[in-house]
Write a protein that binds this DNA or RNA. Structure first.
Lengths: 230, 230
DNA sequence: CGGTGGCTTGACTGGTCTCAATAGATGTGG
DNA sequence: CCACATCTATTGAGACCAGTCAAGCCACCG
């Protein structure tokens, strides 16, 4: 575990990115690699917030729920994203692995101390947090004001942006890391509505659904028109 | 304008709060007081983000809209809150006055420079941004998973927390700074649905609506039960 | 093979939206 | 001070989108 930073897969894209080697020393000693199986939860909403982390590989969901069990996924995290909530004793959301996941985990308190001592680290976290806030607010427009069709189209474009592989004839393909139930929890819909909207997009020739989790975008422009929002 | 900080109404609660007097010098020279009339917009989504500010008095809304004009209010700002988006060339949301408003405005670029030179200022902004992100995510649960009745109950409790004056018999009263249309834009509903839910709450004895904009909460506990979420 | 979990599809329900009329509040000018 | 216009809020009737309930399909796996 001695030199985990020097072999880090996402070092240049994570918040550690612009730290000098001596600055990295602190984090190097703090960080521990950790694997999560698909479905495993890093921490639950309401729990004491013990850890922060950088996501090395895989996809995480951030979610909250009502007392009676309705769930809302409020964010998705991809490799190089920062995970956790510094400066809060209690986590307000749960963080759970959607795929197998590799993390570089820091105990929260020492990480907060590192933030205080390394202004550059703090600055990068601030920029990321501001960007995350913009993204959250964009998603509020989706949840509050878009129709089921628009939501699904926007979701597929978003996923393509993160996971898409260019394939034949300008089309884009990817494997969804989420079940229909999880997509529904992202979009504020039900499984059935998500499924119906997807088949409608397929019938209209905008996408292909070769198998359950695979998606091919055949007509990106058409999808964008259905997604609509500014 | 020489000593605007020393007379500041919200100095101890804003991000300037824990700065020493010499540190305040920079901001003191940067800041300009500005008034906005009800309905005036500080900046529009898509515009170059020219200013940041501290809100001294009044209430602001942060909002986005779809291309065809559907609006979603994604945040409300109260006195001592920070306004604006450092480190972005273009604003992603509009900021508009819901009441008459007083601001302490900073040009964005020099303010960013001040952030870089004053770690404490940056730290406080980071904490606020993290809190704003938590709040935005809580609101995503509301938008995606709560019913009209739950949304309106939660909204009234939230407003009471910010504006409520204790009055007779443990009841709480306040004047809504938003029209029904604006409440609808906060909750992802229509004017009519908001109005119907409010009258239902009145008929059930949980609130009183003495006049259009005034609200009295008669049974806070009952309201909380209707608001439901975790 | 049968069981399980994820996905699709259908029929029906219902909550919220839409459209429309009315009532109340506010402000202006005669 | 009143008539009038304008803006905001309430209320009703009906339509429609998305939810609910239920059945069946498919892939995977013991």
């Amino acid at each position: 575990m001695t030199q985990i930073c020097s072999e880090c897969q996402v070092r240049d894209r994570s918040i550690c990115g612009s730290l000098s080697d001596p600055e990295l020393e602190t984090l190097n000693h703090l960080g521990r690699n950790r694997r999560l199986e698909k479905g495993e939860t890093l921490f639950w909403a309401g729990e004491e917030a013990v850890v922060c982390a950088n996501l090395l590989s895989g996809v995480l969901k951030i979610s909250t729920a009502t007392a009676d069990g309705r769930e809302q996924i409020v964010g998705l995290l991809y490799p190089s994203d920062f995970v956790g909530r510094p400066f809060a004793e209690e986590a307000e959301q749960s963080v759970t692995a959607l795929t197998e996941v590799e993390l570089c985990v820091f105990p929260r308190k020492p990480f907060e101390a590192a933030l205080e001592h390394h202004a550059r680290l703090e600055r990068l976290l601030l920029r990321r947090t501001l960007a995350a806030l913009d993204e959250a607010r964009a998603r509020m427009l989706l949840l509050g004001r878009m129709t089921a069709g628009e939501k699904v189209a926007a979701f597929l474009l978003d996923m393509a942006g993160h996971l898409g592989q260019r394939c034949a004839a300008g089309a884009t393909t990817f494997d969804l890391p989420l079940t229909r139930a999880e997509i529904a929890d992202v979009l504020g819909l039900t499984i059935e509505t998500v499924s119906r909207q997807m088949t409608k997009l397929r019938q209209d020739g905008l996408i292909d659904l070769p198998s359950g989790r695979q998606v091919t975008i055949r007509d990106r422009h058409g999808l964008q028109e259905r997604a609509e929002a500014a």
